[in-house]
């Protein structure tokens, strides 16, 4: 464990908590893409299947459980409890356009052709593109609530910090996982234009609006 990975994990945890609290306290999931949340729940499910078979540390197991519980709780709130506030008209990105190619790629490019490893690879590739329905929804509505933009900033920062962690691990322990690194770079690049808008607008107290 290094400070970059710890900050990354905390940023990820912060993002998940921000979103869950936003939905719970405002009793509304307006402006949030339920499809992205379903994809994130799928990412954690396929990545953490080794939760009970491969113990790394208390921290590792605890965080995996928290991510799983929070992501399913968010999906539950969006599609059941506060279903009336779910904006399905703007959340129209076709998830199968992501899941099918990612599933195929996971079969073709992986470290080890075993069920657990292919599912882990699937989760890594899927996480890289899971935010697309959310970004697509914001481009359709042309704006995002400030709290949603904080959620996205924390979520985007987490994988950017992981990239720094991978550089650090490469130089300190010679460790690198090319699949995670390439997918992590793609994932972070997808946030770039959002990062620009967040820093130039939200941090100046303005509403996050996309140029129509």
């Amino acid at each position: 464990m290094n400070i970059f990975r710890l900050l990354g994990d905390l940023s990820h945890l912060l993002a998940i908590i921000i979103l869950l609290l936003k939905i719970w306290r405002t009793r509304s999931c307006a402006g949030v893409s339920g499809k992205s949340q379903i994809l994130f729940a799928l990412v954690f499910t396929t990545r953490y299947l080794d939760l009970f078979t491969n113990f790394i540390s208390m921290y590792n197991s605890a965080m995996k459980l928290i991510y799983l519980v929070c992501s399913y709780a968010t999906v539950f709130l969006m599609y059941f409890k506060f279903k009336a506030t779910y904006d399905s008209n703007h959340d129209t990105f076709r998830m199968e356009f992501l899941v099918v190619p990612v599933g195929g790629l996971a079969f073709l490019v992986n470290h080890d052709f075993t069920p657990l490893e292919i599912l882990w690879t699937f989760s890594i590739y899927l996480e890289a593109v899971a935010i697309l329905p959310q970004l697509f929804m914001i481009s359709k509505t042309g704006e995002a609530e400030t709290i949603t933009s904080h959620y996205l900033f924390a979520l985007g920062s987490y994988r950017a910090l992981y990239i720094v962690n991978w550089v650090f691990r490469f130089y300190t322990e010679g460790f690198f996982d090319l699949i995670a690194i390439v997918a992590g770079c793609v994932q972070t690049i997808l946030y770039c234009d959002f990062f620009y808008l967040y820093i130039t607008k939200v941090l100046k107290g303005k509403q996050l609006t996309l140029p129509a």
């Binding site: 994990d9 080794d50 470290h111 080890d112 657990l116 992981y162 995670a180």
Partner: peptide, 10 residues
């Protein structure tokens, strides 16, 4: 059994 390399990152 399910092998797979162990991943220590979240």
């Amino acid at each position: 059994g399910w092998k797979g390399t162990t991943h220590d990152e979240l």
